[in-house]
Amino acid sequence: MTLLDQIRIATPHRLETRSLILLSLALVLFLLPLLQVVSDGYNYVLHVLMVIFMYIAMASGWNIIGGYAGYTSLGHPVFFALGAYFSGVLLVYRGWSPFWTAPIAGLVATLFGFAFGLVALRTRGPAFVISTIALLLLAQLILDNWEWVGGSNGLSLPMIGWPYRFYKIPFYYGMLLTALLAIWVSYRIRHSKLGLFLRAIAMDETKAEVAGIDTRMCKVIAFAISAFFAGVCGALWGYQQTYLRPTIFLTIGAAADLVLINLVGGRGTVAGPVLGAALRVGLDELVVNQVGSTELNITVTGLLMVLIVLFFPGGIVGALRERRHLPRLLDWD
């Protein structure tokens, strides 16, 4: 078990004053919608933060399989779409509010992820990523041709019956809670036996197996848990958009976003996806909304990915840690 011991030694437990700072930050975020209640004009701020929360939740979830275990998944948009369509259909045909069905949507995504993982994670290495691309395209094909859920034209959802002024607030809280849950789960896994096993798998799966770890089950469980957050986010996001369409959810670009966020922030660290998500949405708001979106956006995503893989494989958190400049505020590992 020397591999495991090595990892364990490299993982000191620390949680002191910085938890105070983080808790007060969370408190501020919880109280922020009051501004919108008191005086109108903060909907944009709430929206941007909500999108950040969503990406934090999804990227932290992705990180559990993609970072800790080192298995890149390009299939997470499928769980996102699954959540959106599950809650959307229940809303349209039954009138059930997605705020209540979102956690169930997450569980449905988890179950589906578990089943898919049992098949796709039987092998080691690159066959998995191939199967996730295939899953994404297959889901596209099915949703495009399934008239009951609107086919390629999509499905319109009824608007939430709140006054426009308070419209964003429930979504804001929903995403905030999901993001906090995702960070908490990611943190707990990082410091659990499962997390240890997953990182052993990422380092050397053969050795992990020889050490007696049921690598396949670990991978499948990690994949299933990571699907949960994409499912919940999908349910909330679809309701917020009031419109479901295969092309909105099921794109390789959306999968690339999750990969890039993790690469930028630092794959396999707890804080990495949080930082990456904030940067991704922040830059998007600053640059894209000013310059306008073009075909070249995707090129920028791609080039960033190439540059990070070549020069900063550890992302921000990894690079700072290597130079011993990582502020303790961000050292959650």
């Binding site: 890149t72 390009l74 390789i252 690339a256 995707i298 791609g302 080039l303 190439v306």
Partner: peptide, 15 residues
């Protein structure tokens, strides 16, 4: 290499 070529694919697609 997989991530690198993924980035490359996105880059070419955009161009």
């Amino acid at each position: 290499t997989l991530l690198l070529s993924f980035g490359l694919a996105l880059g070419i697609e955009g161009i």
